[in-house]
């Protein structure tokens, strides 16, 4: 579908597409949204039509009303008629779509255990990368998936309640501040969106998920490792072990719905940590990181 037709459908009836396990319908008449979504989500499978269509999240991004259409224009995030957030400056429309969709999943998809973490996969084994903001989680994730690792998510580890496997939900990776240039240099082929400045996380740009990750979004994987990345300027790459108890507590604290899922969530988390290598990884150069991740012996 050419951009012009995509944009007019997006403005008119909306476009529904599959993002990992979810079907999202997006409506927007904002040209920069059409352009950005086309660039980042153009390869995602379109949802079924007519009577076979089931949409999980009806979203729209709209202009502000009255003077806010023109004066410091704003973008409103609407979830099936409700506005869960205050509007943001129009330039932040794409990040708002990502944050809004995260909110929809995190606040209402308790049929999975949801943990704030990046997830990548290789040889059928997934690695969860939990870490506080600023630890270089997204940059490491972007680096790995630019070198053959499969992207599951850079924000949201979705764990199946049925069997403890991770479910892929490959979406654009949020790059912040210096990371944007780092990734442009590291992977010149990468598709990176326009930058949104002055967001609450600084300057943000979105990097499109690798095509293969999008194509294989229905292939789940078992969790082999939980690795806490820490970017430290000038540091030699170093992988050290981390206690399982600490790892479990950290994941529980950084889960969106651990407390909602009760005993099942606890059991799932305990099994997850039990069956995974728990490690800490300090690094300063992406190449070192990729080399060390590629060589992890429990992946071979």
């Amino acid at each position: 579908m050419p951009l012009a037709r995509f944009a007019s459908q997006l403005a008119d009836v909306g476009v529904a597409f599959s993002v990992g396990p979810f079907v999202v319908s997006l409506t927007s008449s904002i040209p920069r949204v059409a352009e950005g979504i086309y660039q980042l989500y153009g390869e995602y499978p379109l949802a079924a039509e007519g009577a076979d269509r089931f949409v999980d999240y009806y979203l729209s991004l709209g202009y502000g009303r009255g003077v806010r259409r023109w004066y410091h224009p704003q973008v409103h995030f609407v979830y099936d008629g409700l506005q869960p957030f205050k509007p943001l400056p129009l330039s932040q429309a794409l990040p708002l779509f990502e944050w809004g969709l995260n909110w929809c999943v995190a606040s209402q998809m308790h049929s999975y255990l949801l943990i704030h973490a990046a997830v990548v996969e290789r040889n059928g084994v997934a690695i969860i990368l939990p870490a506080p903001p600023g630890s270089g989680k997204s940059t490491l994730c972007a680096g790995l998936v630019s070198r053959g690792w499969r992207l599951f998510s850079d924000e949201l580890a979705i764990i199946s309640m049925a069997d403890g496997s991770v479910v892929p939900c490959p979406r654009p990776i949020g790059l912040k501040n210096e990371s944007i240039q780092i990734m442009r240099d590291y992977e010149p082929q990468a598709v990176i969106s326009r930058e949104s400045r002055d967001t609450r996380k600084g300057t943000v740009a979105l990097m499109k998920a690798p095509s293969e990750s999008i194509r294989r979004a229905d292939e789940t994987a078992r969790v082999g490792g939980i690795i806490f990345p820490r970017y430290q300027s000038g540091a030699e790459a170093l992988m050290t072990s981390r206690s399982k108890a600490q790892t479990g507590l950290y994941l529980a604290d950084n889960s969106f719905n651990y407390s909602v899922t009760g005993a099942r969530g606890f059991q799932l988390l305990a099994d997850l940590v039990d069956g995974a290598e728990c490690l800490e990884f300090t690094y300063s150069r992406l190449d070192d990181a990729v080399r060390i991740f590629d060589a992890l012996e429990w992946l071979q």
Partner: peptide, 20 residues
């Protein structure tokens, strides 16, 4: 359908937690 059941399960889980 599975797609609908997932939302029903989610809401049910939430309600159980709230009742507790």
């Amino acid at each position: 359908p599975t797609a609908a059941q997932r939302h029903l399960d989610s809401a049910w889980t939430f309600a159980q937690r709230q009742a507790q």
